[in-house]
Each structure stands twice: as structure tokens, then as C-alpha cells.
Design a protein around this nucleic acid. Structure first.
Ligand code: MN
Ligand code: MN
Ligand code: ZN
Ligand code: ZN
Lengths: 155, 155
DNA sequence: ATTGTTAATGAAAATGATTTTCATTATCAT
DNA sequence: ATGATAATGAAAATCATTTTCATTAACAAT
């Protein structure tokens, strides 16, 4: 079943209607590799569907997060950011966040070793604290290439 | 040099005045193991120093974060949360966040292996992306013991 | 101990992200 | 094609955080 149709079916199952705003927002997120905020998504969506309201963007993002189709992040810049959850493990990646310019970079090297540790950790957590892990998140904060050279030029 | 006095000196160096609100807030954070929000801190501080305003709490937390004395987290519940940075490596720990009740648990098992991986990762990041890592963060999302049993009782 | 400079404070207003309300519209099972 | 009702958009409400500004307090110099 091709993309849109698959979503339509998937959502019908939970007494949901597959509407144009939902299609547009999911489509946008599935095409970008950026970590977009509601306002950014709204701005982008406006270009092709001027009728869609910011409120609907918020509601749709909530729905998609609850449905497990996208991920929500709080990188600490005052707004939430969203990312399409790609199929399977391939897409597993973590984030580098530049503390100066705020840009976010995807990072997916060494994920094998990291995942092994994470699995091991999850097992411990389940046994010791009886905590049922559903998801995890690793992030590195620091200075991106650009901000580093900018800084030394200034000093 | 005992606690308060040490801070007083440390802050003088950066043309800062060591004031009563700063003392009170740092003192509170250094005693608790909770991850408190500005409003929670404000509420607690009020009990002993009714004069201190919420604005000052915000400003002081910013100062302490910039000074590297405390850490700021965004766990995604709409407010930032703060934690005293304890001395040395001993205190290195990560977080378990219950997606249902929002409670946050400290976790510090297996940190050895995790730290080894993190170091390795940092080296790669530095080489490949020229990203200078200053800090990192690992968090697990899931259901805490209590919420799990609550759920099965309801189902 | 007193004093002057000015960093820090608190109250109120402003801002900005997110949520709620409610009348209207559009989806989709029948 | 139609009815039930889920979804929408605009406006208002909320809530966390920041800014403004007149007043206060810290502390270096005396
Ligand atoms: Mn990403
Ligand atoms: Mn902690
Ligand atoms: Zn940067
Ligand atoms: Zn819980």
C-alpha cells in the first residue's frame, strides 16, 4: 500500500479521520531531515495550504506523537521540536546540539556499541528499579565547527 | 574554606555580589536530590525568605547555570528543571523519566561502561564533525514501577 | 564604621509558546 | 447522498519566562 493510503488505514483503526492538514504535516515531516518547531512547520505548511491554522498544527503534532509516528524533543530553546520516525532500526541516531548557535546535528556512528550498552542498561533498569523502558535519548552538547572558528577569530 | 564562604569568593572573581537570595537558592539546591522547577524552588524558598521574588529565582538560576554550578534540564513537561552539580565524577548519573506520572529518577549503574562509550563517541565526533563536546546527556523514557501496577489494576 | 558606586532586586508589564473554547466544517460509515 | 460527529480555525485563555524600571543592598574604598 503506498504512503498516504497506508496512513489513512492506520489511523482509521483508532477512530481518527485522515484529513488534509494531517496529510500535509506528516508529508512535510517525512521529507525533511530538520528538527522543526510548530511555528516552523506552520510557516512551511502555509505555503501550500494557507488555510491551516497553527492550532491544528499543534493538535496534529500531538496526535502523531501519541501514535508513535513522530518524536518530540525538548532541546531547551523554548519550543518543542519534531522529527519523523523512520522505518526500522536504520534510522536510529542521536543529536549534537551547539550551545552557541543552537543548531542540531544528527549523529549515527558507533550506534552499534551504544545500542549494546543501552540494551544492557535497560535490562538492569527493569530488574533493579522495575522501570519499563520505552525509549531512550542520548545527546551531546558543545560547539559546532562553525562556532569554534568564529570564537577564535574574535579572541 | 567552608561552603558559603567559598561561593562568595568564587563569585567575587566575576564581579558578582554574593546576595541572600543566591545563598538561599544554592543552599536549597545543594541539599535536595530533586530536580526542581523555578516555581517549586520559589515556593520552597518563600518559606524561609518570603521577600524573594520569582524573577530573582529565574535570574539566579541562570547565573548558576552560566557559572557551571548547577545543571539545567528540559524533560519536556513545559518547565525547566535544575540540579546541583556535585563535586567530581562520583555524581555522574543519568535519568529515568516516567512518561505517565512525570517523575524523574536518578540512575548511576553501569556508568563505567557508558562513560567509556561516551568518551569513544566524543573522540569520533571531534574528528569527524569537528564538534567540541562540552557535556552529554542520556535519558530513558518509560513507565515507573508504580504506574505499571496502576495500569494493570485498571485493565 | 561610613560612604558612594552600581549590581541586584521585586513588582508589574510584556512576551512567547502552548492550550482551551466554541461555533463551523469536512470526513466517512451507512 | 446523508447524518453523526471528529476535526478545524479564530480568538481568548494559560502558563513559563523575560523585560522594564524604580528602589535597595553589597562591598570596595575611605
Ligand atoms: Mn534527528
Ligand atoms: Mn539527577
Ligand atoms: Zn554552533
Ligand atoms: Zn510513573
Amino acid at each position: 500500500m503506498p504512503g498516504p493510503k497506508r496512513w489513512r488505514h492506520r489511523f482509521r483503526e483508532q477512530v481518527c479521520r485522515w484529513t488534509m492538514p494531517r496529510e500535509a504535516i506528516l508529508d512535510l515531516l517525512s521529507r525533511t531531515s530538520k528538527h522543526m518547531s510548530p511555528k516552523e512547520i506552520y510557516g512551511e505548511i502555509q505555503k501550500s495550504y494557507p488555510g491551516i491554522g497553527l492550532t491544528t498544527v499543534y493538535r496534529t503534532l500531538d496526535l502523531l506523537v501519541r501514535s508513535g509516528v513522530i518524536n518530540r524533543f525538548s532541546f531547551g530553546d523554548g519550543q518543542s521540536r519534531y522529527e519523523f520516525k523512520e522505518g526500522r532500526k536504520q534510522s536510529q541516531h542521536y543529536h549534537l546540539i551547539c550551545t552557541q548557535c543552537g543548531r542540531i546535528f544528527d549523529y549515527s556512528d558507533f550506534v552499534e556499541e551504544e545500542l549494546a550498552i543501552v540494551r544492557k542498561t535497560e535490562a538492569i533498569l527493569a530488574k533493579k528499579y522495575n522501570f519499563m523502558v520505552q525509549d531512550h535519548n542520548i545527546e551531546f552538547y558543545g560547539l559546532c565547527d562553525q562556532c569554534q572558528s568564529q570564537n577564535e577569530r574574535r579572541s
